[in-house]
Amino acid sequence: MLRVIKKGSTKEEIQKTLAGFTKKKKGFQASNFSGIIDLDESPMEIQKKLRDEWK
């Protein structure tokens, strides 16, 4: 995207123009899924069982 800032623009005009360049967050937003899974056991117990499978 290209934005043109002309010579002699006021500070407010420049800030309005630059406000159009917002960064979008990349990556996985885990907060969207918090509280969705209902577990019967504690996560530590599940982890211990999964690690014991390799023995």
Rank of each mutant, 00 (worst) to 15 (best):
A30C: 06
K16F: 04
S31K: 15
M44I: 05
K6I: 02
F33V: 13
A19L: 04
F33M: 08
K11W: 00
Q47V: 09
E53H: 10
G35H: 01
P43S: 09
K11F: 00
G27A: 00
M1W: 08
D52A: 15
I36Q: 12
I14P: 03
E12I: 12
A30H: 08
E12N: 09
Q47E: 11
I36S: 11
G20Y: 08
T22W: 09
F21P: 08
I37D: 14
D38N: 13
P43W: 05
K26P: 03
K6E: 15
R3I: 03
R51H: 07
G27M: 00
S34T: 14
T10P: 00
M1K: 10
K26C: 01
G20E: 14
K26T: 04
D40W: 07
I37L: 14
K11G: 03
A30F: 06
Q47R: 00
D40M: 07
E41Q: 11
L50T: 14
A30P: 10
F21C: 11
R51A: 04
K23F: 13
W54G: 02
K48L: 08
F28W: 09
L18Q: 07
E53W: 02
W54Y: 03
Q29S: 09
K23Y: 11
Q29G: 06
F28I: 01
F33A: 12
S31A: 07
T22F: 08
I36L: 13
V4I: 10
G35A: 03
K7F: 01
W54I: 02
A19F: 05
K24G: 05
Q47C: 06
E53I: 02
K16P: 03
A30W: 05
K48Q: 15
K26L: 02
Q47T: 02
W54R: 04
F21M: 12
K23R: 15
E13P: 03
